[in-house]
Simulated assay, not measured.
Amino acid sequence: MTWSTKQLADLAAVSLRTIRHYHGVGLLPEPERLPNGYKQYDTAHLVTVLRIKRMSSLGLSLEQIAEMLENPGSGEDQLRTLDSELTDTISRLERVRAEVRRALDTGADPDITPEALAAMSALGRDERGRNLAILVTDLRLPAHLSNVFDAITESPGEFTALNEAFTKLDPDASDAETQQMAIEITEAVTGFLTARPALLNAVPTGSEVVTSEAVMGAMRPDTNPAQGRTLNLVTQQLKSHFGGVAESPPHST
């Protein structure tokens, strides 16, 4: 009994494309052809296709399948390898599913972690706050920065209102308005750091400097003129108060 390519595919419940693919990767030998050029498959071809189909359904790779067809005695080794790979895959998928469930429970978007969402409560929910929250929760921060942002996240109420007010600061705000905003920010940061003196003592070294600069850069994105003046005032006041220790306020503003 012999069959055409389509008949073989129908018998094995696979597509014509699958049969051609098996030929292309060398798993299925080419059959003899009739005088008219049509392929003529026999029982051995059908059995081979069914074996390949079975092994593929288990998740064996083409290389593993080729080894099995060449050396049937390698089956146990191939299955043990597959079992180990599946164990790793299941563990990874379980971790991913837990992360997805946690994101759904906290309302976090796919591009940020629940930790970043929590940090945004203190750092601001605008683009600046979002970017900074992603950096401080996803990067391996130097200890001094990690401690600062951990403390901020634990006490979001100290900065939330200020972040919102700073974000809404009109580009044409008067000097009096920017000065008042700077005073409020400086007082909040000064009180925050004074209550936590250990946060002022650490200084980044080596590769930590690069990470610190990335975070500091996110703290000072494009701002309107009034916001820029406010930040400059805050930086001057903090340097004056702490003797140059604080280079910029430890929050999204």
Rank of each mutant, 00 (worst) to 15 (best):
T5E: 05
Q7T: 13
Q7H: 10
Q7P: 12
Q7I: 10
A13I: 10
T18W: 00
G24Q: 10
G24L: 12
V25A: 03
E30D: 13
E30M: 06
P31D: 08
P31K: 04
P31Q: 06
L34M: 03
P35C: 11
N36F: 11
N36Y: 04
Y38R: 02
T43P: 00
T43Y: 04
K53T: 13
S57L: 06
L60G: 14
S61C: 05
I65W: 02
I65M: 09
L69E: 02
E70K: 03
P72E: 02
S84L: 08
E85H: 10
D88T: 15
I90H: 15
S91E: 12
S91P: 00
E94L: 04
E94P: 06
R97S: 15
A98S: 11
P110T: 06
P114S: 08
A116E: 13
E127T: 10
L135K: 04
R140P: 01
L145M: 11
F149A: 02
A151T: 02
A151I: 00
E154Q: 13
T160S: 11
P171C: 14
A173N: 05
A173E: 03
A176H: 12
Q179R: 09
E184I: 05
R196W: 01
P197Y: 02
L199M: 01
L200I: 08
N201P: 06
P204V: 15
T205I: 09
S207L: 14
V209D: 14
V210K: 07
T211K: 09
M216V: 08
M219P: 03
D222I: 13
T223K: 04
L233Q: 14
L233I: 14
V234S: 05
T235E: 15
L238C: 08
F242G: 09
V245C: 12
S248M: 14
P249C: 04
P250G: 07
S252M: 00
T253W: 07
